[in-house]
Amino acid sequence: MNYDLLITGLIIVAQILAVVVPVLISVAFLVYAERKVLALIQLRRGPNIVGPFGILQSFADALKLITKENIIPSGSNKIVFILAPIITMVLSLAGWAVIPFAPGWVVSDINVGIMYLFAVSSLGVYGIIMAGWASNSQYPFLGALRSAAQMVSYEVSIGFVIITVLLCVGSLNLSKIVLAQQTVWFAIPLLPMFIIFFISALAETNRLPFDLPEDESTLVAGFFTEYSSASFVLFFLGEYASMILMSSMTVILFLGGWLPPFDVYPLNVVPGVIWFTVKVIFILFLFIWVRGTFPRYRYDQLMRLGWKVFLPFSLFWVVATSGFLVYFDMLPN
């Protein structure tokens, strides 16, 4: 038995747990925060029974759901039906492998970090398509078809936004992207791209106002209509974990990751991970705020926005940014 191999393996497992467990706990509190913020927007009190200020509500809900019976429809394609929520959950956690929380706080500091994140988030659609198809029922199937078209459309503009940022950084490594923002956060020079990225992130995570795949007013619950109990919990966790992942991606690309807003005394002694968390919470608050205030888009409006507004605009910005960088000789090496 080779002990070095065993120790390396244990360290890898410990690192994975050190990332996954806080993510899952923050999912629980994000659900609670969402319900509280929505309640405040709608002048209600929100969850306030379980624990102080209702803070343990999500744990109670999770326990309730898991202890219920898991129903697999008899007409469904069983293997794919069970695989779909697992894939959603695994993919939403897989992206965290490359997220740098603070200098050096990253499980795997790969050279193509941003490409990896982009790939993982584009794979997220498979959980939804498989769920919709395997359910063998009309509403989930419609939800799956909507989701497939929607996510492919918005990925294109996300890709162009990422290219614009990469032009200013000169590397695909996430830590280098953060370090390139030491003088100024990219949200300031690339403000329009920041807005496009945020809106596309809403579409990519199937959040309101783009939650057409699960549109409850027309599709019951969309792609997870047939899901119950633990498999529903996996979808739910997956959706919120990928929401946090997209927020972290926004923070890394545009809001300077772990960097303080100004490199001055009281601000730069605060640990980087706290800045990172504060910024992620801010973006998540925007997600919830948007949910509380905007009506849902109609499907043709969604497609129009993606293909006729965002795509030409982001394409123009890629060309404009590269032209600017070349003309003023500011290209990074």
């Binding site: 790939a119 794979l123 498979y126 497939a148």
Partner: peptide
């Protein structure tokens, strides 16, 4: 992954 799995295979 991005091109074949994320886009072509989805369609």
């Amino acid at each position: 992954v991005v091109v074949y799995v994320g886009a072509v295979a989805v369609l």
